[in-house]
Structures are given as structure tokens and as C-alpha cells.
Nucleic acid binder design. Structure first.
Length: 594
RNA sequence: GGGGGUGUAGCUCAGUUGGUUAGAGCGAUCGCCUGUCACGCGAUAGGUCGAGGGUUCGAGUCCCUUCACUCCCGCCA
């Protein structure tokens, strides 16, 4: 028998009445009636009410114990009278009448309460994370995370994937995010990089003939944080398969996602078979390559309307002549919305840096007409044409934005989200997954005007790649795909390019010559020259999956020991200065700031 | 790097138009209370109003600078 307990704090029931038991845990809450004291004793599993009165020799000691003191109690399980049963806790039909008591761990005055649903400043939560983690909601989130990871690991194993570890100290890669660097003592002046993802290693695993690999892989990127993006480190379900096409990867991941989300959430899946949306279509219809498909609103291009003679909305017409486009969002049956609704959206858009959102509502007396400040600029025929393009009807409203493609995509995507929320169109009780496919292989850097890889340089380009195609690199699509859920990008993946010649060709388009490729990707390119299987994979973000399942908006709520926005660990004081001996050993010197 | 929000007791917050000694709840300490489950009641302690500067007879409140936390943009193949 355990020295500390016969039962956990969630276990005792009325069937256990009369048993002599011992429990250990934290004092969650005390209710002191002077001569009678109730103690809610909490452990990882639950809460049990314990009771002691003044006749017990331990009464005074227990009465003056702080909340969160760790204690062991021994006593008899007692049935509660009907009117004192607490239905809110599992053990609410009984209580433990304390006989003996022992303090296992004392507790100073708390910097923050543990028993409370109140929100606290992030700073104090992170500094005292060990206290924060005792609190119900986040404690459960972290347990959920553990269960999700076990489940995924089990599913992957069942599907025949093998789990391997890959190096944490590796080499810096020229593409992608900023690296975290680690100085090498044995190689003065040289640095390891922490992996941004095990990208090259997982491909090497395929070249090594292991066929199906996965790993719950730590990834390190030195980029600024967001609510859904931890600074520094995060985890991916990294997976790779040999002798597969895009569809083979999709079917594995779809199965895994459907099983995981059905197992850990009561929310419905909007699609069991995830729709595939091309990158270009997503950018037009949703203004984004991570659309929230719970939102029924779509964006339409109505640029051509502003070339018509019978449209006299001169501001837009002028901009369209000089190369701008017009895109719009239709809201169904909003004719009775107050003027303030429309003006607020317009005002909001201006706050987002756009020139605003023009709008009108379609009305009909004898003829169809547009109501609103700019309605008079559109003829009935022009309105009919808009109705045809956008499939809108009388009673609907249309919000329009005008601008260059990229700024237009940005503002319409934000507007789609904003209007969807304003009109309460987003059902929070569903998960809407989709695949975004057919990403372009290359894009033009807006600042340098150079051609660069738009995503992963190791992706396989689509189609028959003749010389002619290489002359129009921006038209080349890749077997590159993302999986998106409720507007959150869960991962991206690709069928890889396993042909060295083609790889050199693609890198040359992005401005790397053969020797640069040989040098930067020596491990990879060399390996691909010794019989590489066609292969592909993907890497869904574990943190974001758990975030969706836990219904949290911030990734720190599903991360046990997160860093703050400035990539500092307030509990461990990382990063910290190091002493001169350490620097000397590493052949480093610190240049003084300013 | 840029923009927004927040910063008052250990914690969560209030604090009016610039005006007396800066308040409440929780927590802490002390006292009372034998059926609570956010137990109740009474008392006490606890404040560099994030920091620095300025305006003013007078600043928690107005202005400037700065710091911290956070959200967003850039960034994140």
C-alpha cells in the first residue's frame, strides 16, 4: 500500500462508506466554521471534501494551514446527509472525516489564487507557471494535449508508420525562417542550427528505405510570436511516405484528422471528405490561403462592371482604368439592417488601412435599384449583371473594395471575417477542414523583384516540365498543399522533388547555382543521386490541433511552459547572460550594444 | 521595425471635470461561528497609482519620454 494514499481524490463513492482511507493532495479551499472545518482536498484526479472538528487534536494546525499546502489525511469515509450532497463533484455523496493529518509540503502566501476562474495577467501566470498549471482549465488542456499525442502516435503506428528521432543540433538552412544558432566548442567559429523542421532528415529517411516515418518533432524558428504561434519552439506531427502521390498523403491525413477530432471533441465536422481548393481559387473567393469555411460569405470579382457606360461611380472607374480591381462580398437579406451597421463596417475598413468599403442594398419597386449612398451610380442593367455574377438577390447588400490585387485580397479577407462575425454567421460548433492545393512553385519578391521559392524548394513541380515552362516560372504549380481548419493553417506538405537534375534547374531559377546548392544542401542532393524513391509528406502542427480541440484562442493555453511574446521564459529566466569562461570556451565575445 | 490596448494593495478591479487622508471584492493576519461547498460576521495590516520628466496653487487623472505585458502588421520556405 502506498505510504501516501489509499485512494485518489476522485475515487470515493457512497459504496466506500465506513472504509478507513488516506488521501494526499493540495488544500484547494477551506470553509472554516470555527469549531468545524471543511477542506476541499485536490489532486490531479479530483476533489474530495474532508471534514474535521475542534475535538480533533490536529484541528488548530489544519485550520491555520495555507491554501495549496500539500497534506495527507487519514480518516473514515462518511455518507453525507441528503441535503448536503454536492452534485457538482464526483465524490459529492461522501466526505472523509479526518482522523490524522500530516503536512507534506508547506505553502507561502500565494502570488495568485489557484482556486478561481478569474483571468490573470500573463506575466504572473508565466512566472508562476507551476501554480497556473494547477488551475482547472489549463490543467485539463495539458492533459488533453497528452492524450491527443498518445492517440496520434497510436494511430500512426497502426497505419504502419515508424517513429524516429532526428538531430536537434544540425546545420543552418538558407531558405525559410531565421535559425536558432548554437556555437560549437570543438569547431571554433562554427555554429549548429536547431532544425526549423526535420525536412531534410525525413527525406533522407525515405532515401534510406524506411518507407513510412513519423515523429512528434520539435521545430525551432526565430520569428516573432502571434496568438497562435509560439516564439521559438513548437511541435509538428512530422510524417513522410515513399512511393506515394498527393492523394495517398491526403487519405492518411484525412483519416487521422477525422478520427482525432471526432475522438476529442463534440463539435461536428462540416466535411468528412475535405474539399480541395486551389490556391488561386482560395485567394479569389476568400482572399486568403487559410479560409475559414464556417463562414458562408464569398468574395466575387466585379471589376468588369466598372468598365460599363451605365455605371458612373467615378472613383472606382478611374482606379480600374489604371489597373485596380474591384471585389465584393454579398450579405444575404440585410435590407433592414440599420445605416449604422454599414457605416461601421466602412469605418472599420478604413481603420484597417483600406480606403473603405463602398456598399449598397438591392431594392425593388417596379425596377431593381440600389439603395444607399452610392446606389444612384448604378443602372438597373448593371445591377442585373452584378446579380448574375454574385448570385445575389433583392434584399441583399453588397460591400465593394477597390485596389491592387494583393491589398484587395488582404482587405476582402479581413472584411469577410469581420462581416461574418457581425452578422453572426460563423457556427462555433463545427470544424471545417479543407485542403489548399496547387500552390505556385515560385513567386516574385515584391521588394527585390526577384523570383523566389514561394514555399518549399524541395517540392515537386506539376506537369510536363519542358524548357518552355521554365521560361514562365511563375506559372509553374507545385505538388504543395496545406491543410486548414476553421481559418487556422494546420500544416503544409508536399510531394518532394527526388530528381537532382530537376532540383538544380529549379534552384537556378531562384538564383542559386549548382555549387551553392551542392554546398547548402549537400546531404540532400547527394542522397538523391543514389536512388531516391518518389516520396512526400506533411507536418500538421500539434499545438494548433490541441488549441482547436481545447477551444482556445491562444497557443500558450495548450503549452505547458511557454515563453512570452519576447521569447523569454519568465520562470526559468531564459535567455540569460553567460559567464566569461563559457564565452571563452566557445571562442565568442559579446559586442557591447550601442 | 511599425500600429493598437493595458499598467492603481499579493490577486481582480473602481477611481467623475485636475481638488480633503486613493477605494471595493478576494487573499493575508487576528477574533467570533458545528453542515459548508464562492460558507457567514467583525477588526487589522497592506499603495513609489509601471518609471522618469513637464504643465499647474494642486496630477492616479493633462502633456512628453520610457519600460513591461498583450493583440495586430511586417516576419513565419
Amino acid at each position: 500500500m502506498s505510504k501516501y494514499r489509499t485512494h485518489k481524490c476522485s475515487e470515493l463513492r457512497k459504496e466506500d462508506v465506513e472504509k478507513i482511507v488516506s488521501l494526499s493532495g493540495w488544500i484547494n479551499k477551506k470553509r472554516d466554521h470555527g469549531n468545524l472545518l471543511f477542506i476541499d482536498l485536490r489532486d490531479n484526479y479530483g476533489i474530495t471534501q474532508c471534514i474535521i472538528d475542534k475535538d480533533n487534536k490536529y484541528f488548530l494546525e489544519i485550520e491555520k494551514s495555507q491554501l495549496e499546502t500539500v497534506i495527507k489525511v487519514e480518516g473514515k469515509v462518511v455518507k453525507r446527509s441528503d441535503e448536503t450532497i454536492n452534485k457538482d463533484i464526483e465524490t459529492g455523496e461522501i466526505e472523509v472525516a479526518i482522523d490524522t493529518f500530516e503536512i507534506l509540503g508547506t505553502c507561502k502566501e500565494l502570488p495568485m489564487p489557484v482556486f478561481s476562474d478569474q483571468e490573470y495577467a500573463e506575466e504572473i501566470r508565466l512566472k508562476y507557471r507551476f501554480l497556473d498549471l494547477r488551475r482547472k482549465k489549463i490543467h485539463e488542456n495539458i492533459i488533453l494535449r497528452s492524450k491527443v499525442i498518445s492517440f496520434i502516435r497510436n494511430e500512426m503506428t497502426k497505419l504502419g508508420f515508424l517513429e524516429f528521432q532526428t538531430p536537434i543540433l544540425t546545420s543552418s538552412s538558407p531558405e525559410g525562417a531565421r535559425d536558432f544558432l548554437v556555437p560549437s566548442r570543438l569547431n571554433p567559429g562554427k555554429f549548429y542550427a536547431l532544425p526549423q523542421a526535420p525536412q531534410q532528415f525525413k527525406q533522407l529517411i525515405m532515401v534510406s528505405g524506411f518507407d513510412k516515418y513519423f515523429q512528434i518533432a520539435p521545430c525551432f524558428r526565430d520569428e516573432d510570436a502571434r496568438a497562435d504561434r509560439s516564439p521559438g519552439e513548437f511541435y509538428q506531427l512530422d510524417l513522410e511516405m515513399s512511393f506515394v502521390e498527393q492523394e495517398d498523403v491526403f487519405s492518411v491525413v484525412e483519416k487521422l484528422m477525422v478520427n482525432t477530432f471526432k475522438n476529442f471533441s463534440n463539435k461536428k465536422l462540416l466535411y468528412d471528405k475535405f474539399p480541395k481548393i486551389s490556391y488561386n481559387e482560395a485567394m479569389l473567393k476568400y482572399g486568403s490561403d487559410k479560409p475559414d469555411l464556417r463562414n458562408p460569405l464569398v468574395i466575387n470579382d466585379i471589376t468588369e462592371i466598372f468598365n460599363r457606360e451605365d455605371v458612373s461611380f467615378e472613383i472606382f472607374k478611374k482606379l480600374v482604368k489604371s489597373g485596380s480591381m474591384v471585389r465584393c462580398i454579398v450579405t444575404k437579406n440585410t435590407k433592414d439592417k440599420p445605416r449604422s451597421f454599414f457605416d461601421n463596417i466602412d469605418k472599420w475598413a478604413k481603420g484597417e488601412g483600406a480606403s473603405g468599403l463602398a456598399y449598397f442594398t438591392l431594392g425593388q419597386d417596379k425596377n431593381i435599384s440600389a439603395k444607399g449612398p452610392i446606389g444612384k451610380f448604378f443602372s438597373e442593367e448593371a445591377l442585373m449583371e452584378i446579380m448574375k455574377i454574385t448570385k445575389c438577390e433583392v434584399g441583399d447588400s453588397i460591400f465593394m473594395a477597390c485596389g491592387k490585387q494583393s491589398e484587395l485580397e488582404k482587405i476582402t479577407a479581413l472584411a469577410r471575417d469581420k462581416i461574418g462575425k457581425e452578422l453572426d454567421l460563423i457556427n462555433d460548433n463545427i470544424f471545417a477542414f479543407c485542403w489548399i492545393v496547387d500552390y505556385p512553385m515560385f513567386e516574385r519578391d515584391e521588394i527585390s523583384n526577384k523570383i523566389k521559392f514561394s514555399h518549399n524548394p524541395f517540392s515537386m513541380p506539376q506537369g510536363d516540365l519542358t524548357e518552355e515552362n521554365f521560361e514562365k516560372p511563375l506559372d509553374i504549380l507545385a505538388y504543395q498543399y496545406d491543410i486548414v481548419c476553421n481559418g487556422i493553417e494546420l500544416s503544409s506538405g508536399a510531394i518532394r522533388n527526388h530528381k537532382p537534375d530537376l532540383m538544380y534547374k529549379l534552384f537556378s531559377i531562384a538564383g542559386y547555382d549548382k555549387s551553392q546548392v551542392d554546398q547548402k544542401f549537400s546531404g540532400m542532393i547527394n542522397a538523391l543521386s543514389y536512388g531516391a524513391p518518389p516520396h512526400g509528406g506533411i507536418a500538421p502542427g500539434i499545438d494548433r490541433i490541441v488549441m482547436l480541440l481545447a477551444n482556445e484562442k491562444n497557443i500558450r493555453e495548450v503549452t505547458m511552459f511557454p515563453m512570452n511574446q519576447n521569447a523569454q521564459d519568465l520562470m526559468m529566466n531564459a535567455p540569460s547572460e553567460i559567464n566569461s569562461d563559457q564565452l571563452k570556451e566557445l571562442n565568442l565575445s559579446i559586442k557591447n550594444k550601442n
